[in-house]
Amino acid sequence: MASSADLARRQSIALVAGESSGDLLGSRLLAGIRERLPEVRLHGIGGEHMMAQGFTSDWAMDKLTVRGLFEVIPRYREIKGIQNELRDRLLADRPDVFVGVDYPGFNLGLEEQLRKAGIPTMHFIGPQIWAWRGWRIKKIARAVSHMLVIFPFEENIYRNAGIPVTYVGHPLAEVIPMQPDLPAARARLGLAADRRVVAILPGSRMGELKHNGEGFLAAARLLRKRDPQLQFVAPMAGERQMAFFQEQIRQGGYEDLELKLISGQSHCAMEAADAVLVASGTASLEVALYKKPMVISYKVVWASYQIMRHMGYQPWIGLPNILAREFLVPELLQHDATPQALADAMWHQLEDHAHQQRLVRRFTDMHHALLRDTSRESANAVCEVLGARRK
């Protein structure tokens, strides 16, 4: 029987991640694959974290980064063109397996076409069919040879639908320390150790910054009036996001805020904070794993919101609340996300010490539940599909 190294030399794995959270999650999968199959070819679309694992990205990942039902319309032709060209390349190259990393709107359609052509397909992180769009399970059954899921309750959903599935834990539960080191994080960011810090995370996508940024800044100003000693830190996902947010600060006259803008380092900002104002998404789970009080907020264009609000299956949108099955932290959405409402909710997160202690206990339990050797577990599942022997 051929060794793993011999097998890897004639194998390739194609992957697609379409946004920064998927890039980070994909990098954990690739780390495990590299350990098992060090010479395998890894290519497709991904970001800097995936490329650090020897991944070749054939397009810049930010070409795909867009969110919202109506926000995608101006970009549809460009994104569809990338999908078609990538499909044609993969059908010609015939990778041994394709792994879609989240980004279901793009990846499921691609996976369905590749699977029809006989290429095994995997999907890493199940679409949130338990939250909305449950009908997608039928498309997933057509498109995906094997699901890799990151929440324990998802296994039964896919198993009951006849879709092979493996629970691999959440990669972020490994990356984020069980005990955050607040003083060290503040020292790394040059923040005063003896003054409270609020982290502002309006989102990594340009559309999120457009809809959330101004309100988050206005809320910060109101908080600063209540406590002039507050410090603010806002991590930006890239140069475009940084420039756009700086323009929002300038146009809104927010230069007087003691706001430290940083490039990347979102985890360090969360670790340094006393409380976090965060756009709904994976970042809210990251904040929970850092055991921090938070307010979750989100705005999209009006038409998108009208459609999306009628498609949800449960009362929560924030991942910490979904996992807890209760409103552990506030969610302020769309017209409810006024600067005053955001500031009031954030002030409660800063001032209620009993609530903070309860959150630490609940978020610690959540962290333990999600903690697995995700890199190894997911790589094992990929290698099983490839036919490689488990170590």
Rank of each mutant, 00 (worst) to 15 (best):
S204H: 09
E174Q: 14
V198T: 11
I200K: 07
L182M: 13
N160F: 04
Y167R: 12
H170T: 06
E155G: 07
P202Q: 06
R159A: 02
P152V: 07
V149P: 14
L189M: 07
F153P: 10
I157N: 08
M178R: 03
V175H: 05
I150K: 08
V197N: 11
Y158H: 06
H170M: 08
I150L: 13
I163L: 06
A192G: 10
E214S: 14
E174N: 14
Q179F: 13
G169H: 02
I200D: 05
E155P: 00
L182W: 05
S145R: 07
V165N: 09
G213F: 06
A199C: 15
Q179V: 15
V198W: 10
P177Y: 07
I200F: 09
Y158G: 00
L148I: 06
M206S: 10
P171G: 06
V149N: 12
E214T: 14
V198F: 09
A184Y: 08
M206G: 11
I176P: 01
Y158P: 03
R205V: 10
H146P: 00
V175N: 05
R205W: 11
L201Y: 10
E155W: 08
M147T: 05
K210N: 13
V168I: 01
G190I: 03
P164H: 06
A187P: 00
R196T: 14
L191R: 01
G203E: 02
F151S: 11
K210E: 15
P177F: 11
N212K: 13
K210F: 14
I163R: 08
R195C: 03
R195I: 04
E208M: 14
E214K: 15
